[in-house]
Design a protein around this nucleic acid. Structure first.
Lengths: 264, 264
DNA sequence: CTTATTTTGATCGTTTTTGATCGTAATTCG
DNA sequence: CGAATTACGATCAAAAACGATCAAAATAAG
């Protein structure tokens, strides 16, 4: 029957539909809808509940991606920065990843590559825990609730016996004096990270510039490389030019692959 | 139901949500929220606390535990054991949780309680990472890919400076000589756990008995308490009676009433 | 063209869900 | 430690949704 087919299309597309919605959409009475759903449920293609219907066929995956993260404006910048930062990593490198949304984006881009990853971030660790191409080392310590990263003396102590080739750190603010984060213990841990690394690379989007925060983490001369999106003002570009720090500008509208959020 | 699904999305994304937040977000009364949460808790996808909800469902990376048949008898056993084991934990205790599916179930039951948790298990850490009633400490070290737990010298070293009141360890096998697990490094780490704990509690379902594995972890006299489901044979019950080890039998058909209408 | 059968839409009593209220329990604050 | 505040669960009435029933409309058969 044609009506049943259209009904299934609607259900499949929306995942869940209420009976009034179906009535309006198909222009038949609710009684008819109910009868149709009854047989649709018998054939296993939909599952009724109080208030509507669920689709229970295959291919529900599309909908899950749609409901993922709302796309922020700042998020594009972070992705662009992560894209450039990932180019700095060579296969079989030993890489330290700090917590933070930008480093998390970087981590997503590194999944699947043969690397040794050291991190204090729980979300980052989760990304790699399923992968068998990476050797994953977690820095122990107390979890900072809001951010899901370990920090504190345990973490610092563990960092003392670790050496990595490249450390990617995130920041809450940058000003002419240096780089800032909001938590004192975390900042101390990040200093230890810097000491454990041959190269320290800061990833920061342009909105962070000119803003400071509670605790200064590093000074300019301690940073090897800085990756920022291209919205960085010329004022800051000029300032950085005069320093030893290497500046990498990430182009914003590069043809990023569309399926950015693979939940796997 | 559509509302339940949206609710779970919010909970999953934020880790912890208060009831007023959910009311504003979903635009229904708090009574409805409470009722929904009740059923959500019955189906094990969330854990209620005073003031809100924690997400305890699969965090997309817990696949190793989801593998088993959901109606597997072994799963009920693990849940029953976890239920009894949770009774051994007092508020404000310092508790060490090993990796493993049974300890993971235990962890789910402990979410929201005021505790200090130390763990080497990534899935367990994820459960608590959003909680602010818990002080969470992660044992650093290399991740054992298949199981998502840290182990090795880093972990052992960190354990040396830690003391907990109760350690809950899981095992792969139990025979008359002692307790076994399958990985040598992991077993060494678990020995360190035992040394760090005032009380060592083993959680093991009855199917583990009579089976050994590669590496012996502990001997009988090192274990204070053993929690097993009631399917344990009388042979083993008698044996344990003659030892110093405290045996707790978990009843299988306890209050877990069938939540028939949970549509995912 | 008439009759039988099926499908549809409306009505109605019943069940389920919802939102508000209130007494109790837990948590916070002084 | 006690008071105030907040959160919780139980209860109940209103609202929504459901299934059953029946008559009208559409379709098929004779």
């Amino acid at each position: 029957m044609a009506r049943r087919a259209r009904m299934l299309d609607v259900i499949r597309q929306q995942g869940f539909v209420s009976i009034p919605e179906l009535r309006d959409s198909l222009e038949v009475s609710e009684s008819t809808i109910r009868r149709d759903l009854e047989s649709l449920e018998d054939s296993g293609e939909a599952r009724r509940t109080h208030g509507g219907v669920f689709y229970t066929g295959s291919v529900t995956t599309v909908r899950q991606f749609q409901r993922g993260n709302p796309n922020d404006g700042a998020w594009d910048k972070k992705r662009a920065i992560a894209f450039e930062a990932a180019k700095l990593v060579s296969d079989h490198d030993t890489v330290l990843l700090d917590g933070g949304s930008t480093t998390y984006e970087l981590a997503k881009q590194l999944v699947g590559r043969p690397l040794q990853i050291v991190t204090n971030s729980l979300p980052v660790a989760n990304l790699f825990s399923a992968s068998d191409s990476v050797d994953l080392v977690i820095l122990g310590g107390a979890i900072h609730n809001r951010t899901g990263v370990t920090h504190g003396p345990f973490t610092d102590q563990m960092l003392e016996t670790i050496n990595v080739q490249k450390a990617f750190l995130s920041v809450a603010g940058v000003n002419e004096k240096g780089f800032y984060n909001s938590n004192l213990l975390l900042v101390e841990t990040e200093r230890c990270m810097m000491r454990s690394a041959d190269r320290t690379i800061i990833v920061a989007d342009s909105t962070k510039f000119g803003r400071s925060s509670l605790a200064r983490m590093l000074e300019w001369n301690q940073v090897d490389t800085l990756v920022v999106d291209e919205d960085l003002s010329t004022l800051w570009r000029d300032r950085i030019d005069e320093l030893d720090t290497n500046l990498i500008l990430a182009p914003l509208n590069n043809s990023q692959d569309t399926h950015s959020n693979s939940i796997s």
